[in-house]
Write a protein that binds this DNA or RNA. Structure first.
Length: 907
DNA sequence: TTCGGCACGTA
DNA sequence: CGTACGTGCCGAAG
């Protein structure tokens, strides 16, 4: 795709020292060291740049030039050349040798010559390459290299860290400095170069120098005309003429350095895989090694081709024999479903399936399926011994079930597997996965490559049916091959087990929960919606009255800003990208300062609007059975949590009394067998804090949970040094905010903001906390350090999240990744636990022969519908199964409530 | 019509 | 300058 074909030889030259220095100062040294204490930030940054340029530019020849010593002809002429530089930092020492080891492993030539600088070597090789008609790319952070740029010699000049370079063409040099590249050294001689300790002419900057060069051609022209130069700058030049000419001699690169290698010796060779592993292991560069292998190996592979598939649309009566021959027990068969479009009445019913085994694919039309074929297909789908793989199995199975074809024996879901491999992708689209893991294009329809053998099966008469069959079989082939490829991509046995024992079985649980839905008191909901709407209108009128303007749209932040900060001239709030925030926090702050009635009405309007919209959305979601059926997304949240959509039932209000009223309309309902008795809500108390106690092994926190005392009271007594009974409500709430904040990477600043206290007080609070709970402090520090080393975080069940930004040279991104690394094991382990709890609870209910069923999951809470007479037994199952989902160093506390509505079941 | 930004609900 | 989500509205872009 991106890389060029090597018709013309392309030589890539790197300035090893300047790039290593760039990297050293761009990446925080404290974040890059091996367990033995060797600093590696310069090696990391250099190697990262090297990989990027190899990937993006696909050179045919490569060399890296290094300075050998500071003694060169330049220091002989001018002792102060490059003097005044700070001594080489001790952490940098030794990294250049490590870089050379990396280069050796990659079989990239590096060159250094006594008495010359890297730039001179680069100039010499550039000259040789140009005379042979090669294109040249130079990657250097030294501006002296600008003089080498021409229409076939491009300079990649790093800006901002190690991830961004400017492509310096002659035009770009001229745009930046006002002169062509061949005149850049003349300009630099006058302007000076502080990094080389070459002083410029006082009062002469790039603008003046460029103007003179434009007028007089080059530096010698300027020298000849020096007497005619006007102004102070002209006089200054005359006064410093010797210095300018000396600068010019020094910044002239040497084009004839005696070298032992020639351009032909620099041809890119295959790299030494074993040596790469050895060197990268020693450097503890796991992320970078992955990147190296994936970028360089993909460049080596052939251009992507389409999916090849062999198969046919099965004629009537042939389904059984095809299945026996190509989809027997012990082999793996991909199933891809074509479904009718989803309607208001329900999900789309399956109309056809594509199948693919190891060898052959097939297409089965379900619309006019004969009884024998139906039996054969149904038997195959239901047989757990005949292993099936699907992509996004939940929806596919749902369509098949609608068609009366239940499925058992699913051994992989390619979307779920890909999610476990890389949990923070935006989508797991089949075509994307095929490209990424199979390096195959998932082409459809008129692409001849995808047709292949299929032409034979359908002949020239390419009907719509044939196209559908082809598409289904190509997809099935992709799913089959992907499922094998993804098996090997899963990091280890633990992740395989996570897929097999947790995520895959959960698909069925979620499907049943979605199908069950939750009953709704529609009349009550409509009354509520009206009530909120009326209150909203009233609030709007009050707000308009307060400012004497009934044209302002209170829902428009832009118009609100005009009212607040122009018309009312209130104090400015926190900045956003487009202006000043009007969020509830800021408005409340303004109200506290000014008590302006508009603010009160506006906040009330916000509240009521929100509630009305929530109620309205729920009304729209009620299905014909009087219930709301959410959809759970299993591959969205990078931490491993589920999410809920259409509608989202994981963000139903609970914090305010008014909001809680919405929970009253979620009520106990009935199914085909009759009425249920109640709703039951069971949640883990302080699950994330318990996981933090477990993962950190902090004795204080573990004791807190084992004593069974109120957690925040216990922690408060330690932090404030008082007896538990003397912990005031204020102390408790501060400690509570801090405890939860810690799991998100909260800073003292953030804590102070939230609690409305000074940063100093917040800092003191955190220090005191960490003093008392040192295990937590150590854990939070170590978890980030470990993730930085390995490149990923891990949960209790081995769910990984990769965080390459932990080594970003961009501070914002790096610190964001650090907070993610801190939070992911905690939030993710909690997600692991509740998923296990769901599996066990469903199995427990089933084994106990109970009709009661699970309806909702809200991260740490399960909502169940309890059948008459089953309450006690259901509670026992739920407590037991949720409580034993994992064996932690602290008990898992489950609290249970029961009631007619979700609100009443809260506790 | 599409999309980014804002605001806000939950754990 | 606290993590993870989904949704609705506005207003600028198309």
């Amino acid at each position: 795709m991106g890389h060029r074909l090597p018709c013309v030889s392309r030589l890539l030259l790197l300035d090893g020292h300047s790039l290593a220095y760039r990297a050293f100062y761009a990446l925080p040294v404290e974040n890059f060291s091996t367990t033995t204490g060797q600093s590696t930030n310069a090696v990391y940054g250099f190697t990262s740049m090297l990989i990027n340029v190899l990937r993006d530019e696909a050179p045919t020849h490569v060399a890296v030039a290094f300075d050998r010593s500071r003694q060169t002809f330049r220091t002989q002429e001018y002792a102060e050349y490059k003097a005044g530089r700070a001594a080489t930092p001790s952490e940098f020492v030794g990294q250049v040798d490590l870089i050379k080891q990396v280069l050796d492993a990659l079989r990239i030539t590096h060159v250094e010559v006594d008495g010359y600088e890297a730039d001179d070597i680069i100039a010499t090789l550039t000259g040789q390459a140009r005379s042979q008609g090669m294109e040249v790319l130079i990657l250097s952070g030294d501006r002296d290299a600008f003089q080498l740029v021409d229409d076939r010699t491009l300079l990649l000049y790093p800006v901002r860290g190690v991830s961004e370079t400017w492509r310096m063409t002659p035009e770009k040099v001229e745009e930046k400095y006002g002169v062509r590249p061949e005149r850049y050294s003349d300009l630099a001689a006058m302007v000076g170069e502080s990094s080389d300790n070459l002083p410029g002419v006082p009062g002469v900057g790039p603008k003046t120098a460029a103007k003179w060069l434009a007028a007089h051609g080059d530096l010698s022209g300027i020298v000849s005309a020096a007497d005619q130069l006007t102004g102070k700058a002209g006089q200054a030049l005359r006064d410093h003429l010797d210095q300018v000419l000396r600068n010019r001699r020094l910044n002239q690169l040497v084009g004839d350095v005696p070298l032992e290698v020639g351009v032909d010796d620099l041809q890119a060779r295959g790299w030494d895989r074993e040596e790469v592993h050895r060197v990268f292991d020693g450097l503890e560069f796991r992320v970078l090694r992955d990147r190296l292998f994936s970028t360089l190996e993909s460049a080596e592979t052939e251009a992507e081709e389409g999916i090849e598939v062999e198969g046919q649309a099965l004629p009537a009566g042939e389904v059984a024999s095809w299945l026996d021959r190509y989809a027997g027990a012990g082999s793996r068969t991909a199933v891809v479903v074509h479904a009718a479009p989803r309607t208001a009445a329900g999900p789309g019913e399956a109309t056809a399936v594509g199948l693919a085994g190891a060898e052959q694919a097939a297409f089965v039309d379900l619309v006019d399926l004969g009884p024998d074929d139906e039996t054969a297909l149904a038997g195959f789908l239901l047989d757990p011994a005949r292993e099936k793989v699907l992509h996004e199995a939940k929806g596919q199975v749902r369509s098949l079930e609608e068609r009366g074809l239940p499925v058992e024996g699913i051994v992989s879901d390619t979307a779920l597997a890909a999610y476990l491999v890389r949990p923070d992708q935006r989508s797991y689209d089949l075509a994307d996965l095929a490209l990424r893991y199979l390096r195959r294009e998932l082409r459809l329809d008129d692409e001849p490559e995808a047709q292949g053998q299929l032409e034979l099966a359908f002949g020239a008469d390419d009907t719509a049916e044939a196209a559908a069959a082809r598409s289904a079989m190509v997809h099935a082939r992709a799913v089959h091959d992907l499922s094998l490829a993804l098996d090997t991509e899963l990091a280890d046995d633990e992740e395989q087990a996570l897929l097999r024992d947790v995520e895959l079985p959960l698909v069925g649980v979620l499907r049943r929960m979605e199908r069950a839905g939750i009953a709704v008191d529609v009349d009550g909901l409509q009354r509520l919606e009206r009530e909120f709407a009326d209150a909203m209108t009233q609030a709007q009128q009050d707000a308009w009255d307060a400012i004497g303007d009934d044209t302002v749209n209170l829902g428009s932040p832009k118009q609100l800003q005009t009212v607040l900060f122009d018309t009312l001239a209130l104090p400015k709030t926190r900045r956003t990208k487009t202006g000043y925030t009007t969020d509830a926090d800021a408005l409340a702050g303004l109200y506290a300062q000014t008590e302006h009635p508009f603010l009160e009405a506006l906040l009330r309007h916000r509240d009521k609007t929100r509630l009305r919209i929530t109620a309205e959305g729920l009304i729209k979601s009620v299905a014909d059975d009087g219930r709301i059926h959410t959809t759970y997304q299993q591959t969205i949240a990078a931490t491993g949590r589920l999410s809920s959509t259409e509608p989202n039932l994981q963000n139903i209000p609970i914090r305010t009394e008014e909001g809680r009223r919405i929970r009253e309309i979620f009520v106990v309902g009935r199914d085909g067998q009759g009425d249920f008795e109640s709703l039951m809500s069971a949640d883990y108390s302080q699950i994330e804090m318990r996981i933090m106690a477990h993962l950190s092994g902090d004795e204080g926190l573990i004791e807190a949970f084992r004593t069974g005392e109120d957690l925040h009271r216990f922690v408060g007594s330690r932090v404030f040094g008082v007896d538990p009974e003397d912990v005031t409500l204020e102390m408790r709430s501060k400690v509570k905010a801090m405890s939860y904040g810690l799991a998100y990477g909260l800073s003292a600043f953030g804590l102070s903001k939230q609690l409305g206290i000074s940063t100093g007080e917040a800092k003191g609070l955190m220090d005191e906390y960490f003093e008392r709970f040192g295990g937590v402090r150590d854990y939070l520090r170590d978890v980030v350090a470990e993730a930085r080393r390995s490149g990923f975080t891990e949960t209790i069940l081995g769910r990984r999240r990769h965080l390459p930004d932990l080594v970003s040279d961009n501070r914002q991104r790096r610190e964001m990744a650090e907070r993610m690394a801190l939070n992911a094991p905690i939030q993710g382990s909690a997600a692991d636990l509740i998923k296990v709890a769901m599996l066990r609870t469903e199995r427990g209910l089933q084994e106990a022969g109970l009709r009661s069923r699970m309806l909702l999951q809200v991260h740490d809470e399960l909502v169940l519908e309890v059948a008459p007479g089953e309450q006690e037994r259901v509670e026992q199952v739920v407590r037991e199964q949720m409580g034993s989902a994992a064996d932690l160093q602290v008990p898992l506390d489950v609290s249970v409530g029961v009631g007619r509505t979700w609100h009443d079941a809260a506790h």
